[in-house]
């Protein structure tokens, strides 16, 4: 028997070396430099794509500028951001509080599935933004319209995930618990809930990212204040530098809240084999 070297195989060991951390910054920095260069050389219209330096100055003013009645934006970055965060927090919390128990019950009990399942199935395909006219008509341009839209939107992925979570509980685990003395009515709490945790967390993450999307939609179209409202106002004044600041803010907030959720739940999930982390 002759060992034939397979091309590519010998390189697998070298591939395991991790790229040094600083190399991960290369692509964003290159993009940033190209972007700045494009503006300096007037390759792009600065009105529409302002340079990174302009964007930074805009953020500086939006964040630290003195607040005045004359300016729509000076110094309002933090209050705008906090307002959006507040809306997401309340809407997402409502969605989680209603979605987790309902989803688990639908997945667990035939009776609840027959009662509530069809309603969820009918409502779910309607794009959540299609509820916007109703949200505005019922709640007016008030806080509750945004909260309604966010909680209603985040509710569905959470419910759907929790249904699958409760449905996949292995039969032998239920039998094991019954054999060890768990009464039937406590199975949901003792077995189904912990077994469904990875699914619940996956649903919460989907719901959270949807919440960020919906807060912007609601603020652009229905309610006053917040990052989405500021973005739309900036667009109307053709201040695209502010729009870009808002976009970056959202990227950071989305990442931070998702990381936070993963971190908070990781202690509960370390037993799970299922890949919860999705690396890009």
């Amino acid at each position: 028997m002759v060992e034939i070297p397979v091309p590519g195989l010998e390189s697998t060991s070298t591939r395991r070396f991790r790229t040094p951390r600083w190399q991960r910054w290369i692509s964003p920095i290159v993009i940033l430099l190209l972007w700045q260069l494009a503006d300096t050389l007037h390759v792009v219209n600065e009105q529409i794509v302002p340079a990174p330096s302009t964007v930074f100055l805009a953020w500086h003013e939006w964040f630290l500028g003195s607040r005045s009645a004359l300016s729509w934006s000076s110094g309002t970055w933090l209050p705008d951001t906090l307002l959006s965060v507040r809306r997401v927090a309340i809407g997402f919390a409502i969605a989680a509080c209603l979605g987790i128990p309902l989803g688990l019950m639908i997945g667990w009990s035939r009776k609840v599935a027959d009662l509530a399942g069809p309603l969820v199935q009918i409502l779910r395909p309607i794009p959540i933004t299609a509820w916007l006219p109703f949200a505005a008509a019922i709640f007016g341009i008030r806080e509750s319209a945004a909260i309604f839209l966010i909680s209603f939107g985040a509710f569905f992925p959470i419910v759907v995930s929790c249904v699958s979570g409760a449905e996949q509980v292995p039969l032998t685990l239920i039998r094991a618990a019954r054999m060890l003395g768990t009464p039937r009515h406590k199975l949901l709490w003792r077995v189904a809930l912990p077994s469904a945790l990875p699914f619940i967390v996956a649903g919460l993450r989907l719901g959270l990212s949807l919440s960020w999307m919906l807060v912007i939609v609601a603020e652009m179209l229905a309610v006053k204040g917040g990052l989405g409202y500021a973005m739309w106002s900036a667009y109307e004044y053709l201040r695209m530098d502010y729009v870009i600041v808002a976009m970056f803010t959202l990227a950071v907030l989305g990442t931070l809240t998702d990381r936070g959720l993963v971190l908070l739940t990781s202690r509960l999930l370390h037993w799970s084999h299922r890949p919860i982390e999705q690396h890009p």
Binding site: L173, A177, M179, P194, S195
Partner: peptide, 28 residues
């Protein structure tokens, strides 16, 4: 129905994966 007078040992173990060994044994 099932009950703690008849302990069952399953082919696929049926341990609760979210509990450590001590809590699995303490479950019943």
């Amino acid at each position: 129905g099932p009950g703690p007078d008849r302990g069952v040992v399953f082919q696929d173990y049926a341990l609760f994966p979210w509990l450590d060994v001590l809590h699995n044994v303490a479950f019943g």
